[in-house]
C-alpha cells in the first residue's frame, strides 16, 4: 500500500529480483539441458562405429562435451542432477524433437550436428552476458568448447558439398531436418522470452536468435546453390512441440537406454 492507501501498481518484472526467478527462466535452462542430454546420448552411439577413426573420436568427444554442458545446466537448477536428467516423466522433458532423432546414418548425424551446433553458438552467445550470473558463466565456458564443434561440422560440410555425391546426399537431409531444427528456438510453455530479455537473462528474443541462426546456415549452404526451406511441409505429419512436453516417437527408446544402468543399480552416479 502506498501513502494514499491505494494498492501499489504491480510491475511486470521486479528488476531487483533474482533473474533465475523470472517466469520461464528455469524452464528455458531445463529445455537447453534436455537438448544437450539427448544430443550427447545420441552422439555417443557412434563410439567404435564411426566411418573412420578420427570421426569416431570426434563425435564421441563432442558427445562428452554436450553431456558436460547438460550437467552444468542441470546444476543451475538443483543438486540432484541424476534425478533431473533421468528421473522425470517423458512429458516433463522439454527437449526439441531434433535432439531425440537417433540419426544412425552418418550423413544425417553430420547435418543434425551442423544445425544443432550453429544453433548452440547463437544461443550460448545470447546467454553469455546473462543477468543470471552463473548461467552466463556456463554459457561462456561452453562457448569456448563449442568452437571446435563448429569447426568440425563446417569443415566436413564444406568439403563434402564440393562433391556431387555430397550434394546429392546431404541437401535432401537439410530439407528434412532444417524445419525440425527450428524447434530449438521454441519457447517452453509459459515462458515469455520478452520478459527474459527485459530482465537481462537473454540478450535477444528466441525469434531473433532463430533468424540469426538461419542466416548462418543459409550462408554456409549458399555456395552449394541451396537455401533451406524452414517451414514444416506438413505439420500434421510432423507435429512439433518438444518444448511443450510432447515427446517424439524416438524418445522412449533413447530414455530407456539412458536409464539402463541406473535401473540395474539405482545408486550408480554419473
Amino acid at each position: 500500500m502506498n501513502d494514499m492507501g491505494e494498492p501499489e501498481r504491480v510491475t511486470a518484472i521486479e528488476p531487483t529480483g533474482d533473474p533465475a526467478d523470472v517466469p520461464g527462466a528455469r524452464d528455458l535452462v531445463l529445455a537447453l539441458a534436455d537438448d544437450e542430454l539427448c544430443i550427447g546420448q545420441n552422439l555417443g552411439w557412434w563410439i567404435a562405429v564411426g566411418p573412420f577413426l578420427e570421426e569416431d573420436l570426434a563425435l564421441t568427444s563432442i558427445s562428452q562435451d554436450e553431456l558436460g554442458h547438460a550437467r552444468a545446466l542441470y546444476g543451475l537448477l538443483g543438486d540432484d542432477i541424476d534425478a533431473m536428467a533421468y528421473g522425470r516423466e517423458p512429458y516433463e522433458y522439454l527437449c526439441a524433437h531434433i535432439t531425440e532423432l537417433p540419426c544412425h546414418d552418418w550423413a544425417e548425424t553430420l547435418v543434425r550436428h551442423f544445425l544443432y551446433d550453429t544453433a548452440e553458438s547463437v544461443r550460448w552467445g545470447a546467454l553469455a552476458d546473462s543477468s543470471w550470473e552463473s548461467l552466463g558463466a556456463v554459457a561462456r565456458r561452453a562457448l569456448a568448447e563449442e568452437r571446435s564443434h563448429l569447426r568440425h561440422a563446417t569443415g566436413l560440410l564444406d568439403r563434402l558439398l564440393r562433391t556431387d555425391a555430397g550434394i546429392a546426399h546431404l541437401l535432401p537431409l537439410f530439407d528434412q531436418l532444417a524445419p525440425m531444427a527450428c524447434g530449438l528456438f521454441d519457447a517452453p510453455s509459459g515462458c515469455s522470452d520478452e520478459a527474459l530479455v527485459a530482465a537481462g537473462v537473454m540478450a535477444c528474443e528466441l525469434g531473433n536468435q532463430r533468424a540469426q541462426w538461419q542466416d548462418i546456415v543459409g550462408e554456409a549452404l549458399a555456395p552449394a546453390g541451396y537455401q533451406p526451406q524452414w517451414a514444416v511441409a506438413d505439420p500434421e505429419a510432423a507435429p512439433l512441440g518438444g518444448r511443450a512436453g510432447r515427446r517424439s516417437p524416438h524418445f522412449a527408446a533413447l530414455h530407456a537406454e539412458m536409464v539402463e544402468v541406473l535401473s540395474i543399480d539405482p545408486s550408480a552416479r554419473w
Partner: peptide
C-alpha cells in the same frame, strides 16, 4: 589444449554473429 579459451577470464563472447564468422577462420 583442444579448446581456444577466452582471451581473458570471464571475457564474454557477446556477439552471436562472431561465432558465425569464426566458422570460416583458419585452423
Amino acid at each position: 589444449g583442444r579448446v581456444e579459451f577466452p582471451a581473458a577470464t570471464g571475457a564474454a563472447q557477446s556477439s552471436p554473429a562472431a561465432m558465425g564468422a569464426a566458422q570460416s577462420s583458419p585452423v
